[in-house]
């Protein structure tokens, strides 16, 4: 079971307290109506799925309830870092 550091609680807590939230830094466009079908498809469905460093969202669902971002290695599952929502991509 992973140990995940919540940047809001500032504590490493077991994985069962958290919920995975998909790839990070995919911002909803301010005005989706300006998006072409291809751009909208990209936003909805296309994900990077890297081997290695992956920026992803987690929610401390059974803790503070906050969404935050993390960098996790998809090969080793090791968390490089976690940081608050809204902070720049690491």
């Amino acid at each position: 079971m992973l140990l995940i550091h919540c940047p809001y609680c500032e504590e490493a807590r077991p994985e069962v307290e958290f919920a995975y939230g998909g790839e990070a830094h995919i911002a909803r466009p301010v005005d989706p109506s300006t998006y072409s079908d291809e751009q909208w498809e990209e936003f909805l469905y296309i994900r990077s799925n890297p081997r290695g460093r992956h920026h992803e969202r987690w929610r401390h669902a059974h803790g503070c309830g906050r969404f935050f971002n993390a960098v996790r290695d998809t090969v080793t599952d090791v968390f490089e870092t976690t940081y608050k929502a809204g902070e720049a991509r690491k």
């Binding site: 911002a27 969202r57 929610r59 669902a61 309830g65 906050r66 929502a85 809204g86």
Partner: peptide, 13 residues
């Protein structure tokens, strides 16, 4: 509730 929190916290903070 999770979905609403998501939008509130990350898209429309």
């Amino acid at each position: 509730l999770n979905m609403m929190e998501d939008y509130l916290q990350t898209e429309w903070a």
